[in-house]
């Protein structure tokens, strides 16, 4: 009755709300934890202490190099057809503007295709993308590539509608990528509301002029660490189930939901198992990634360091889509492995989270999944998640302790049972 014991402890027992309260203490103390910042390194040192005090094993930090970008002071003011100060969030790795800013006319488009079609109009302009939100993975391409596509047609800067499912005038940030051989131009996200207003103005023939100022700066790579803790396996200690979340966040809100929730239900999974005096046959390894928001930078270095042991990884798990009431588990692996995971999820009938979906993934675990290791991610209420994602609304208030208890229970049952079963999950 291990599953029932874990569920009872996490959802109804003395461990209930523990992951929420632990997370609140950290993010209230440290705040947001952008890559390269002092607050991220402070959070890592606090977690190193926390995990040792929690009695976990082989607690250690693995050094890595990560990018360091700072947004500085930024503003965008519409000067025509009327004065309107706009809320913006510069995008990660963007360059800044000259001190006096960039003042230019605006070209509003709703797609890359429209931008290509109207390329002659773009030269010397600020391109505003008012792309509709389809889903995150599709629409995020506008945030990531908006500057490059605008620069290719001679634009001076790009302002991109936030990639958000819902907005109450909240800009959302995130990483963007320049391209060799294409001029670098400043790029930022604007609110859904402003993108749509400028689209309406432009369609009426209004001339729109914006003054954009960005103090963004890229610094030399910084030192950081992936944080690791284990419950060492009793029978096959060299074999591993890896459970993870990322400790870094954007420089907005508190980074509570992205990805404090995922990091702390992953810690909670090990705490629950330890509290029950359980020791799985395989090693249960917690990894709190650094610099995930820069593209899995910490995780990639971890993979390079440990890939020689890829055959010993039974399952890699990352929670980076929220810790509200889970819809189920996303899974990537062979049919036979999926059949086994479906049986494991049946153990979560008491909390009514038994569904197994396709496409288990996570920026930090995709390296292992591509190397053939089965992968799992916790599926959540994505509409709610992407309304707060990478915005100042990403705070403890966005989370619910009771729902986080259920997420932690699911995470703990899956990771423990797979780590304790007689055989590793079969590969494709």
């Amino acid at each position: 009755d291990v599953a029932k014991a874990i569920i009872d402890l996490a959802v109804y027992g003395k461990a209930q709300n523990r992951s929420y309260e632990r997370l609140a203490l950290l993010v209230d103390t440290v705040g947001p934890r952008p890559s390269g910042s002092r607050s991220l390194e402070k959070a890592i040192q606090i977690m190193y202490q926390n995990l040792r005090e929690d009695g976990l094993e082989n607690v250690h930090l693995e050094p890595v190099k990560i990018p360091h970008w700072e947004r500085g002071e930024e503003s965008a003011v519409m000067l025509e057809p009327r004065i309107h100060r706009m809320a913006i969030l510069g995008l990660g790795s963007s360059i800044g503007t000259p001190p006096e800013g960039i003042t230019a006319e605006v070209l509003v488009v709703t797609s890359f295709e429209e931008l290509q079609r109207r390329a002659p109009e773009a030269r010397g302009k600020i391109v505003v993308y008012n792309q509709p939100y389809v889903n995150y993975s599709t629409t995020v391409q506008y945030r990531v590539q908006g500057a490059v596509e605008a620069a290719k047609v001679g634009a001076l800067a790009s302002l991109i509608r936030s990639v958000a499912s819902f907005s109450i005038y909240s800009p959302h940030t995130g990483i963007q990528e320049y391209q060799d051989g294409v001029p670098k131009i400043p790029t930022a996200c604007i609110t859904v509301e402003d993108a749509e207003m400028m689209s309406r103005m432009a369609s009426r023939g209004n001339r729109i002029v914006i003054q954009l100022k960005m103090g963004a700066k890229n610094y030399p790579d910084a030192d950081s660490f992936n944080t690791v803790a284990e419950i060492i396996g009793s029978k096959y200690p060299e074999q591993v189930v890896l459970v993870s979340g990322h400790l870094d966040s954007w420089d907005v809100g508190q980074g509570a939901m992205d990805d404090g929730g995922g990091a702390f239900i992953s810690w909670e999974a090990l705490s629950l198992i330890k509290d029950l005096g359980l020791r799985p046959k395989r090693t249960l390894r917690l990894v709190l990634w650094t610099a995930e928001e820069q593209g899995g930078v910490g995780a990639f270095q971890y993979y390079l360091l440990h890939q020689a042991n890829v055959s010993n990884y039974s399952l890699v798990m990352e929670s980076d889509l929220g810790t509200f009431l889970p819809s189920g588990l996303q899974f990537t692996g062979s049919d036979e492995a999926r059949a086994i995971v479906e049986e494991v999820m049946r153990l979560l009938q008491p909390v009514n989270v038994t569904r197994v979906f396709r496409a288990g993934e996570g920026t930090d675990i995709n390296f292992w999944i591509q190397a053939g290791v089965p992968g799992a991610s916790l599926l959540d209420d994505l509409y709610r998640y992407f309304s707060f994602h990478h915005s100042d609304g990403d705070t403890m208030t966005a989370l619910d302790p009771k729902q986080m208890n259920v997420a932690a229970a699911v995470w703990a049952v899956v990771s423990y049972v797979i780590a304790d079963m007689e055989e590793m999950l079969p590969r494709s």
Partner: peptide, 24 residues
């Protein structure tokens, strides 16, 4: 070996199912 389900022999899969059920 018995006929296969998802490339696991039914006996083996059945065993795994029973093993997992024991964690309930």
């Amino acid at each position: 070996k018995p006929i296969y389900k998802n490339d696991i022999s039914r006996r083996t899969f059945q065993e795994i199912k029973e093993e997992i059920a024991s964690y309930r």
